[in-house]
Design a protein around this nucleic acid. Structure first.
Length: 563
DNA sequence: GCCGTTTTCGGCCCGACTGTTTTCAGTCG
């Protein structure tokens, strides 16, 4: 799958055209299709082979030709030419927060700064103060130092906890605030937090938040700070009549907003963070609520999780937005661990905590024996575990613990136990943890083989990614999805905050192909049972409805599906 | 470079904040 490479290629073209200072609209023209291509769930090379590249949103003849050349030859002559026009280091310098194309060009061309490392050294030695002025030089030094410490995006779960602290702080001072930005949309990683309020004190109050390290900027309607943990928080103050427009604007995504603005322009209107208004008369058309603005634009209300310019505008216009799944729809959780393998809490505690959450059932999916490091179970130990499960099931009726396993898919695609032994389980999930550095072909073959095993019900965390630590395994997901569909097997959205796997793009693809999904916690302690909340957010971003997710079914229906 | 039920040419999202090249360009979201 070359989609990511092609998207990066276009982003590079975008940065280079920006840096070369020719036409800033060209830069935009390269960036927009990069975004569409990232959201494709089909291999772009397949699209190329059918000669349909120009059907991708924002790809015209020019870009199609470039993509074609790149995919066929692995290079792009145009890129080489463009790179020669721009001084070495320009594009790299633009990665620094506070450096845009003009400053990057100036620094590389006139002051010979060739890299971020050199920028850091030169700034540290005070060499660039003449070029930038004292304030800018100081600011940029802070920027590059911050990059060095590797501060990047937070996990969704970290952002959720941090936002609770912030909201609590404002609430304790009598202010009502809303969190907008990518957190409201539920992205799997969050860069910074955007907080909205109608109270003028809001901007001032942020400065007094105990976690604040430094104020970046402070105006009457907008204040930005860095917290001690490196996270940027922005507070925006708005009037009550503007609040819906502001919420819409600051929730984004940027791409979604741009489409809304273009829609407004078509109608002779203008949309900004204050209102939807008529360009000619200047008269306000809407602004108090998001719903009102969508309505005036001829659209149904679009839930924040869908606002990514992935077809939601058309769906809203045609009245075919999905009725998104809610975490309360889940009646059980089909992946969790106990002290029988690598969990921190005993079977009984997990079961009682799950029952407490209101579940009708859970599956205890302790590891199979080849995952030695996770204390995987032998057949003998499983038999003992089942006795314990039977006793608990008697006690907790009608709540039901399913006898289950997270079965390791070994390097050759085989599972740990004989087929006859697997028949004792109510539910079997297969996972690839070991030997994940195999070739894409081997990894795909393993997943396909596991999904073809008669006892396997689901492939857990199909790509095995760990957000911020390692990319997903390079498996052929379209093939895995097709295999799951053909064999009537399920795929999982693992709610563990570092996994969230499948991600929203592939979960949506699986759903569209008719594959049933599971949303599980993969909890290793009772506290982690809440992971299903994060998994459900991914499910919502994947356009899933209740009917698309098996663990929304009542126990009886689920057992029927599993049999 | 892309796009078009007014357009195949002439547009391309919009505003806040900062620093300072004191009237606006650069950067960001």
């Amino acid at each position: 799958m070359k989609n990511k490479d092609v998207a990066e290629l276009l982003e590079k073209l975008s940065l280079l055209s920006e840096a070369s200072g020719e036409d800033r609209f060209k830069a935009i023209a390269y960036r927009r299709p990069a975004n569409s291509i990232k959201n494709l769930s089909e291999d772009i090379d397949e699209i190329r082979k059918r000669g349909e590249l120009t059907q991708i949103q924002y790809v015209g003849e020019g870009i199609a030709k470039k993509i074609d050349e790149y995919l066929r030859t692995g290079k792009l002559e145009f890129l080489d030419r463009l790179e020669k026009k721009v001084p070495e280091g320009t594009v790299e310098l633009m990665e620094v927060s506070g450096i845009g194309p003009r400053t990057a060009y100036k620094l590389s061309k006139e002051y010979g700064v060739k890299s971020i490392a050199q920028l850091r050294a030169d700034l540290g030695a005070g060499k660039l103060t003449d070029a930038l002025g004292e304030t800018m030089a100081k600011r940029l030094l802070e920027s590059v130092e911050k990059m060095k410490t590797g501060q990047s995006r937070m996990l969704l779960v970290e952002a959720i906890y941090l936002s609770r602290d912030l909201v609590g702080y404002f609430t304790s001072h009598g202010l009502k605030v809303d969190v907008a930005g990518s957190l409201r949309r539920g992205r799997s990683t969050i860069g910074d937090l955007d907080i909205l309020c109608t109270d003028k004190e809001g901007a001032e109050l942020l400065v007094g938040f105990p976690g604040v390290d430094r104020v970046i900027e402070k105006g009457p309607t907008r204040t930005s700070v860095f917290l001690k943990n490196g996270v940027q928080v922005d507070v925006r103050v708005l009037g009550k009549e503007e609040y819906g427009a502001a919420l819409l604007y600051f929730t984004g995504s940027k791409e979604h907003n741009i489409v809304l603005r273009n829609l407004s322009i078509e109608k002779g209107w203008k949309l900004n963070e204050y209102e939807l208004s008529d360009v000619k008369t200047g008269k306000r058309i809407a602004g108090k609520t998001e719903t009102e603005i969508y309505q005036k634009l001829g659209l149904a209300y679009i839930p924040p999780e869908l606002r990514e310019d992935r077809g939601e505008i058309e769906a809203a216009r045609e009245g075919r937005l999905p009725d998104l799944i809610d975490v309360g729809d889940l009646r059980g959780d089909l992946q969790m661990h106990s002290t029988w393998s690598d969990g921190a809490d005993e079977l009984e505690r997990m079961a009682r905590a799950a029952k407490e959450r209101g579940y009708e059932y859970i599956a205890i999916t302790d590891h199979s024996f080849s995952v030695g490091i996770a204390n995987g179970l032998s057949e003998e130990r499983f038999k003992n575990q089942w006795k314990a499960i039977d006793e608990l099931n008697d006690e907790l009726k009608p709540f039901r613990i399913l006898k289950a396993v997270e079965a390791e898919v070994r390097s050759d695609g085989n599972l740990d136990y004989d087929r006859s032994f697997f028949e004792n389980f109510d539910f079997v999930g297969a996972s690839i943890h070991q030997a994940y550095r195999q070739s894409p072909e081997k990894l795909t073959a393993r997943a396909v083989k596991a999904l073809s095993h008669p006892s396997v019900d689901v492939l857990f965390h199909p790509t095995n990614r760990l957000i911020g630590k390692r990319d997903g395994n390079p498996i052929d997901l379209p093939k895995v999805i097709a295999t799951a569909r053909e064999n009537g097997k399920m795929l999982e959205i693992d709610g563990s905050p570092m996994r969230l796997d499948l991600d929203e793009v592939w979960a949506r693809k699986a759903m569209e192909e008719g594959v049933t999904l599971l949303i599980d916690s993969d909890a290793h302690s009772t506290g982690e049972l809440e992971n299903v909340e994060y998994g459900t957010i991914v499910g919502r971003r994947a356009w899933l409805e209740k009917k698309d997710v098996a663990n929304t079914m009542p126990l009886r229906g689920l057992l029927k599906k599993l049999s």
